[in-house]
Design a protein around this nucleic acid. Structure first.
Lengths: 207, 207
DNA sequence: TAGATTGTTAATCGATTAACAATC
DNA sequence: TAGATTGTTAATCGATTAACAATC
């Protein structure tokens, strides 16, 4: 599979995946690129192009089998593997991530938080234990979580990430403002950028 | 100002803004598109093109005044206005948003949460009161918050948004999975999409 | 077989980069 | 004035859309 897949294409897959999941729940068994495109407000061409980066999942004259396509995209996204997540930082952002259970059902599990505040260590958030930040490395080598969510201030993030990378973490889910560069995939969620963009659009909507 | 500004450009502004703010704190007074581009890992051309969508903020032979440029971008993003935010839904996601204080210092204030669970109504999260969801409309007409964060399940989101729009909300910060379409700006934060994308990149990094 | 819809190539569109004249 | 760096036009690149032959 996989000719060189443009990033924009990969970013659209989760949306397709979610939508196909919904259709599946509603008992829809087949869908054409046209029907899909109308619901998703993109062109049918784009959907066919996107999917063909990964292989021909459809059948001419028929369309796509919803179940099969959903499965395939899930596989491409790596959702069959169960990912275990640790959260670095048990402040506001860490709490937010630990509380946000929306992604649990897709096989992502948060198994521990880390902080260096003695008042927090030993406690729990949403049932998840808060451990001592000095033990991140040891913990990772022992338990091999795949993903680390970074919820510490930007200036502290760099050092943490370096340690995590050495300890065998496979990917970073970054909630700090730091532009992390390291050898493993980093996915950054910029909540404040998102809010600033909304602010911009509100302002430029109302003149 | 403002020739037709492509969305990609607007999305880059918060990043420039953040970085210029950091430089400002470090006492840097002037910066060239070249220097900026190296730090931000984009081309100098792109920075100049982007900025020139909004006007010529630089000076030939000199570069950009950091303070001025920071101010200008802040103004473009509408960060001088103070935005008041209400959060609809006091479940995991609503709690997460209420706990995430990172954007406060930029003049965004969360002033209330809404839920329809009697056990939650009357309580507080992070100091913010939880009010009865049936009073959203009345509250908005009285207090005129500008932004509503949607933290209810997708199927419930549509109806809420309609009411909010009628009650004079100016923008929607959407944390639900619903693809909301309405007359006011909607900015969606797809945490789970983001995580799926990370999963994808981890998978395609390690073969 | 006729109708439908894919997979894929070609055409278009828009965004990024390069180049350079204007000018501080 | 000479050097630097912008603002802006032109060239390139990549992504989206259109078209259509392949085929179920």
């Amino acid at each position: 599979m996989a000719k060189n897949v443009p990033e924009v294409v990969a970013r659209r897959l989760p949306r397709y995946y979610r939508y196909l999941g919904e259709q599946l729940e509603q008992g829809v068994t087949k869908i054409s690129s046209r029907a899909l495109s109308e619901k998703m407000r993109v062109t049918a061409s784009q959907i066919r192009q996107d999917l063909n980066c990964f292989g021909g999942f459809g059948q001419q004259g028929y369309g796509y089998n919803v179940y099969e396509l959903h499965e395939k995209i899930g596989e491409i996204l790596g959702l069959n593997d169960c990912y275990r997540i640790i959260v670095i930082g048990a402040g506001n952002v860490g709490r937010a991530v630990a509380n946000y259970a929306g992604f649990r059902r897709r096989g992502f599990v948060i198994e521990a938080l880390f902080d260096n505040d003695p008042n927090l260590i030993g406690g729990r958030i949403n049932g998840i234990p808060i451990l001592d930040a000095s033990e991140i490395g040891a913990y990772c080598r022992e338990n091999s979580p795949q993903i680390a969510a970074i919820a510490v201030p930007g200036h502290a993030a760099e050092a943490v990430v370096e340690e995590l990378e050495e300890s065998g973490i496979l990917g970073i889910w970054n909630f700090s403002h730091a532009d992390l560069n390291c050898g493993i995939p980093v996915e950054t969620v910029h909540m404040s950028d998102s809010l600033m963009n909304l602010s911009y659009r509100i302002k430029n909507n109302e003149q």
